[in-house]
Design a protein around this nucleic acid. Structure first.
Length: 580
RNA sequence: GGACACGUGGCCUAGCCAGGAUAGGGCGAGAGGUUCCUAACCUCUAGAUCGCGGGUUCAAAUCCCGCCGUGUCCGCCA
């Protein structure tokens, strides 16, 4: 509804500007401060004071006179306050917001017939997901949900790095070592099983004599060559090992509600000939050259050339990624990739090379995040220095359970919590806190891991928002009969109107979060919504001490809040508990 | 050395891209609030030269330049 109001106001400004012979496209629309009655404001007066030759407050007054209220459906009143032009929403604005938000899919946009491939996580299939990179699935999944809600046709892809040195090392380790060489299995799952081989092989490569090390490296590069030439036996081994790891990762990610539509293997592009074809095409480019037996490509604006073919004739990560990107560009209108900031350079080389190959790189967007590091440094699967996401989740659910049980006896509740409720609530809160904690912070900011920070159930964190949903459900569960003929004008207190206004912002927030690929905007919104609801809840009894008409109107408001909240939480992958 | 990102009360964070009303929250600290729909709530108080220095502008946390601090990258690794 805010979107509709904005476009009404924009149209009106266009009209006024043409009357005044002003040419501008930005009318300085902004959100006024809390205590102002208006919900939309313009600082256009500042922008045109020179052209008008008058002080801003005078300009504002003049523009207000020229704005034609007749055409406004959603604006009740326009007034100048100093240099600002403020717009107060109409009864119709609130009425339609309330009606629209009765729908469970409130805030969702119509399909717009545009497809987007979101690639995220794509961690090397060498071991369990650790916390260092946990921002990737959480940001990627949230962006996927938001884009989908905003009307795009979204496909979520995991690009499996099943070629290249670390997988060759893994296959080598599997032949070299036996189960009895391995330490204890921390968790009976494929990713935990395999990672032991990977870590042991790295210990071996670091600590062996030079001769042993050289032999091992020759054996590994032999395996790499076989992967590259499409050797069937090696490929079968590769698939079975990586499937074991991926199976474990999927299970882990499923715990935080992250799922994929497709897993795309790097080897796919080797086997279908795309890589060979890519190498040939790159060689044809003007800036391609051969040096020390390897093929390189000079890239405009880059100091270092891109090496796209090793001197032994095997391809490199970026070469294969180029094939994957071209394949994605064929299949979707837009592609979004979530990457760690350590991949920035590679991503830039990739994009520029694609552009040299004639691709429309404006359809590509990349979102970078910085790693979650330990106080003593980065987490590494290879070195085994990471904190596994599973452990973080287990600990979070455990601490959430502590919070749930601590509150159990100390409060008035009509129904006792069953064991299954405690399990459910602990899980919803524990997992929600992790997702919220990660998505609430801008991806670019660095995070140093700290158990207490990661696991705090702070006010205005996930439980605060989840609690609002539970409160709404609690009220609605007590509702006796269906409500009909709601009169939205009965909702006229400041608390009610503030809440309704907040609800009306959801579609605007969804579209801007989708446009900017910034899921944390949803969290910021949901916090505000929760705050407004809690104030309403305090001041406005819904079921008690109100006549039936007011009760009906307030019940609608509660339903609207519930829908806006559960959709907001859904968009960042947090569950909405019916009770807490 | 070069490139990129980040720097907002003791701690964490929003706002920055599209400059505009008193820099918005939270944690922690202090004071209050529940015979009433779940107090994981609400209200109030204290606490900020928005890293530093210049510049542009009627107006800068926001844009530009320089500097400082932190992180990342600059591989025939991924």
């Amino acid at each position: 509804m805010l979107l509709a109001m904005r476009s009404e106001v924009e149209n009106a400004f266009e009209c006024v500007c043409s009357q005044l012979d002003l040419h501008m496209s930005d009318f300085g629309l902004e959100e006024p401060p809390e205590e102002v009655e208006a919900i939309l404001a313009s600082n256009i007066a500042y922008r045109v004071q020179k052209e008008m030759g008058k002080p801003p407050s005078e300009v504002a007054g003049k523009i207000v006179k020229l704005l034609d209220l007749e055409n406004f459906q959603y604006v009740d009143r326009v007034y100048a306050e100093g240099p600002y032009i403020n717009f107060v929403p109409s009864a119709k604005y609130f009425k339609e917001t309330l009606e629209g938000a009765q729908e469970e899919n409130y805030g969702q946009f119509q399909k717009r017939g545009e497809t987007v491939i979101v690639e995220h996580t794509s961690a090397n299939p060498t071991g369990p997901v650790h916390v260092g990179r946990a921002r990737n699935p959480i940001i990627g999944d949230s962006i996927s949900r938001i884009l989908s809600f905003a009307g795009y046709q979204v496909e979520r892809q995991y690009y499996v790095n099943d070629s290249g040195k670390q997988v060759a090392t893994l296959i080598w380790a599997f032949e070299k070592f036996n189960e009895r060489d391995m330490g204890d299995l921390k968790k009976d799952r494929g990713d935990y099983d395999i990672v032991r081989y990977y870590q042991l092989s790295n210990v071996y490569l670091e600590n062996s004599s030079i001769e042993d090390k050289n032999i091992a490296e020759l054996e590994i590069s032999d395996i790499l060559g076989k992967i590259e030439s499409g050797d069937e036996e090696i490929y079968q081994k590769l698939v079975s090992i990586t499937e074991m790891v991926l199976g474990g990762m999927k299970e882990c990610l499923y715990r935080i509600s992250v799922e994929f539509d497709e897993f795309i293997r790097e080897t796919k592009f080797i086997q279908d000939g795309s890589v060979d074809e890519m190498v040939d095409r790159l060689k044809q480019l003007d800036s391609a050259f051969q040096e020390d037996g390897a093929w390189k490509l000079g890239i405009p604006g880059e100091e270092k050339p891109l090496v796209f073919l090793r001197s032994d004739g095997t391809s490199l990560y970026t070469t294969r990624d180029l094939c994957y990107h071209e394949w994605k560009l064929e299949r979707a209108d837009k592609i979004v990739t979530i990457l760690g900031e350590d991949h920035k350079f590679q991503a830039e080389q990739l994009t520029k090379t694609l552009s040299l190959l004639g691709a429309e790189t404006s359809r590509i967007r990349q979102v970078f995040y910085s790693w979650v590091n330990l106080p003593e440094g980065g987490m590494s699967t290879r070195k085994g220095t990471g904190i596994n996401l599973d452990d973080l989740l287990d600990e979070s659910v455990k601490r959430a359970r502590g919070e749930v049980t601590a509150r159990e006896g100390s409060r008035i509740r009509e129904m006792e919590l069953k064991k299954s409720d405690i399990d459910r609530i602990s899980r919803q809160i524990g997992i929600g806190a992790i997702r919220c904690g990660i998505v609430a912070t801008q991806p670019g900011k660095g995070i140093t891991f700290d158990w207490d920070d990661a696991l705090s159930f702070e006010r205005q964190g996930a439980p605060y928002m989840q609690y609002v949903h539970a409160r709404c459900c609690g009220i609605l569960a007590k509702q006796k009969s269906d409500i009909q003929g709601v009169d939205s004008t009965l909702l006229n207190s400041k608390e009610e109107l503030d809440l309704l206004h907040e609800i009306s912002r959801l579609p605007f927030v969804v579209s801007s979060a989708a446009e900017a690929l910034e899921p944390h905007r949803i969290i910021t919104y949901a916090q505000k919504l929760a705050e407004k609801f809690n104030i309403f809840y305090r001041e406005c009894p819904v079921l008690k001490g109100t006549d039936s008409e007011l009760m009906a109107a307030r019940l609608s408001l509660v339903t609207a809040t519930k829908n806006a909240m559960s959709n907001s939480l859904y968009l960042v992958g947090i569950e909405s508990p019916d009770s807490m």
